[in-house]
Simulated scan of single mutants.
Amino acid sequence: MSATVIQLKSVLTCPNCGYQKEETMPTNACQYFYECENCHEHLKPKTGDCCVYCSYGTVKCPPIQQGNCCC
Rank of each mutant, 00 (worst) to 15 (best):
Y34F: 12
Y19K: 15
T58A: 03
T27N: 09
H42T: 14
C51S: 03
C70E: 02
V59I: 12
T47H: 11
Q66K: 11
C14P: 00
V5Q: 13
E35C: 03
N16I: 12
Y32Q: 08
A29C: 14
K46E: 01
V11S: 08
H40R: 15
E23R: 14
M1W: 08
Y32E: 06
L8T: 12
C70L: 07
T4R: 13
C71Y: 11
Y34D: 01
T58I: 07
I64F: 11
K60R: 08
T4V: 14
K9I: 07
C17G: 00
Q7S: 11
A3H: 15
C69R: 07
N38G: 07
C17T: 04
T27Y: 09
V59D: 08
C50D: 05
Y53P: 04
A29K: 15
N28V: 07
Q66I: 02
Y19N: 09
D49A: 10
C30R: 13
N38E: 13
L12Q: 07
N38I: 13
K21P: 02
L8F: 08
K60C: 04
H40C: 08
C70S: 10
V59N: 06
Q31I: 02
E41G: 00
C17W: 02
K21Q: 11
I6P: 15
T24L: 05
C71F: 05
G48M: 03
T4P: 03
C61P: 10
K21C: 01
C39Q: 02
N68D: 11
N28M: 06
H40P: 05
C14N: 00
V5E: 15
L8M: 10
Q66V: 04
Q31V: 01
S55R: 05
T13W: 02
